[in-house]
């Protein structure tokens, strides 16, 4: 176990390094500088002053080295556009993305697993076909288009739900305000991962049902419901844990679009702002934080998996 962890840790560090190198050189070698040097009506002198102030007159390699040195001590630099520490800006926004994704995961699991099981045990039936059909539909609808249509319906025509924002926080917080802002974003994000959960549960369940030991239990005359819920389900659920690891990156990618549609001020809208404003330190910071989050999630999934699945316990 320890060897496994050390191994994974080493790989993660290498991955992180590769990601930072690619991102750093990509953004720094592109035409156009940070917005702060790039106002339309800034005079050449104002521009030059900014370039020197931000240290952009130094070679890229030197900048990368100093960035990396800072990053190792937990200092991700200062945002070009707000002059606040990058860590602080990310810390302000990350909780909103986590809020959104956690609700989405919980709802997707609560809905997706029973549907997947139903689809598996009724294999080939009408409900199975309907579920399959809608899974594919869910995978095919562009999330932002669906989002726009929902806004058109619920915000513009019916006026039931707010079209944008995260709702009031702090002293003005109220429950309905919070929930009403969450409904549409969570719904959209759910459609991007729910089909995956349904399909994975279905195939995992089918796999287990066709195993010999289930046949044996059946042959012994156990009730079908007991076979399904006690024996098959327990073993089918274990692999489902792994799909969480697969879904995290997909969820975060989906969050960028969802946040953009609904003005959800999370990490997704922040990366858009940062990329458009050429806020190099902020882009780097977000990239590295996102990569770490994904690596951690995968690591946790691996550990949990090795704990619950007797077959891989001794790895």
């Amino acid at each position: 176990m320890l060897k496994f962890l050390i191994n994974r840790f080493g790989q993660s560090i290498i991955l992180l390094l590769i990601v930072t190198v690619i991102t750093f050189f990509l953004i720094n070698l592109a035409p156009g500088g940070p917005s702060s040097t790039m106002r339309m009506d800034a005079s050449p002198e104002e521009r030059q002053a900014m370039v020197e102030k931000l240290g952009l007159d130094q070679p890229v390699i030197v900048r990368y080295a100093s960035w990396l040195k800072g990053a190792f001590s937990g200092d991700l630099g200062t945002s070009f556009t707000s002059n606040e520490p990058v860590v602080q800006r990310i810390a302000e926004r990350l909780p909103y993305t986590i809020e959104l994704t956690i609700f989405t995961i919980i709802i997707s699991i609560i809905i997706g697993i029973p549907i997947g099981i139903l689809s598996a045990i009724k294999r080939g039936s009408v409900p199975d076909h309907i579920i399959n059909f809608f899974s594919v539909v869910g995978l095919s609808v562009p999330a932002f288009w669906l989002g726009l249509m929902l806004i058109l319906l619920f915000s513009i025509n019916l006026g039931w739900l707010p079209s944008s924002g995260v709702g009031a926080r702090g002293v003005d917080f109220n429950l309905w305000g919070w929930i009403s802002h969450l409904i549409m974003p969570v719904l959209i994000l759910t459609t991007t991962i729910l089909p995956n959960i349904v399909r994975f549960t279905r195939s995992s369940m089918l796999e287990v049902i066709s195993q010999n030991y289930i046949r044996t239990i059946r042959a012994k005359g156990a009730k079908e419901s007991i076979v399904i819920y006690i024996h098959a389900l327990r073993n089918a659920l274990i692999p489902i844990i792994t799909i969480i690891g697969v879904l995290i990156p997909r969820l975060l990618s989906g969050a960028v679009i969802t946040e953009a549609i609904f003005g959800w001020t999370g990490i997704g809208t922040l990366i858009l702002e940062a990329a458009r404003g050429r806020d190099y330190p902020l882009v780097m910071g977000i990239t590295i934080v996102i990569t770490i989050v994904v690596i951690l999630c995968n690591l946790i999934v691996d550990i949990v998996y090795s704990r619950v699945d007797p077959r891989v316990k001794n790895v």
Partner: peptide, 23 residues
């Protein structure tokens, strides 16, 4: 093109033939 790229190319480098904008 993306705004910052345009500024670099058109305003800073003057590498353009025709452009449209406002003051």
């Amino acid at each position: 093109m993306e705004w910052n790229t345009m500024i670099q190319q058109v305003v800073v480098e003057r590498d353009y033939e025709m452009t449209l904008n406002w003051w």
